[in-house]
Design a protein around this nucleic acid. Sequence first.
DNA 1: GCGCTGATTCGACAACTGTCTATGTTGACC
DNA 2: GGTCAACATAGACAGTTGTCGAATCAGCGC
Lengths: 125, 125
Amino acid sequence: MSNPQSLPLIEPDSDAVVPCCPPLTERPFTVDEAETAARMFKALGDPVRVRLFSAVASHPGGEACVCDISDVGVSQPTVSHHLKKLKEAGLLTSERRGTWVYYRVEPSVLAAMGRLLTASASAGA
Amino acid sequence: MSNPQSLPLIEPDSDAVVPCCPPLTERPFTVDEAETAARMFKALGDPVRVRLFSAVASHPGGEACVCDISDVGVSQPTVSHHLKKLKEAGLLTSERRGTWVYYRVEPSVLAAMGRLLTASASAGA
DNA sequence: GCGCTGATTCGACAACTGTCTATGTTGACC
DNA sequence: GGTCAACATAGACAGTTGTCGAATCAGCGC
């Protein structure tokens, strides 16, 4: 494979979403697709994680320091644990700036999840 | 069904979605909202359930008999168990017709989930 | 360097989840 | 009524998950 000009083009526009899966209604998911999709949904399958994610997503500037959002009724290590899960699922990214760690929403993954569902909804017979 | 006059009016237009929660980016979710949202996401947080749901959603006519979709690599009781979970989460409804039980996608819940995410995605800073 | 604050990692444990086999229920057909 | 097929429920069990306290790591200011 040595065709230097025919690299698979990655869409440069911000609309590009991770090529995860077709809409849920398009066809029965394969095992791999189902595992990918389930991993993303699972990340938002816990109330504490939903609150943390929502707190980050709704924070001015689209990012939030852990200290800004850790008032969700569980201990601080537990907050850290959930943030890690959200990061592993690709929904959040983190960056250390001095003493604090800032978390930020990963829009493309969120968009991919949304398309999975909205396309389904609009296609609902 | 014989009181056609005093039924609480359900919005007849197909756009009506269950009033679950605002978009994830709008504001930090309350505890109740987070639990509602998490319950829905959790339902799609298992690969087998994603495959079952996708199989129903993509089936011609928007519904499928259990026998049509139960080839997902787990035993028949396990399929039944997962379909029950999806039903409890409000994502599917079921109806017995003779020997067979047909499952059907609940579009409003799916649309609610989609709006939760797509509004977020488009609002991504 | 030292202590302080913010955040993650570790180890433990109860609770939940997914899976199975065995059994029950429901309807169709003879 | 008896039998068969489709689906659901019950009980058991291993693996995973959410939670905590304790310990550790990473910067900052003195």
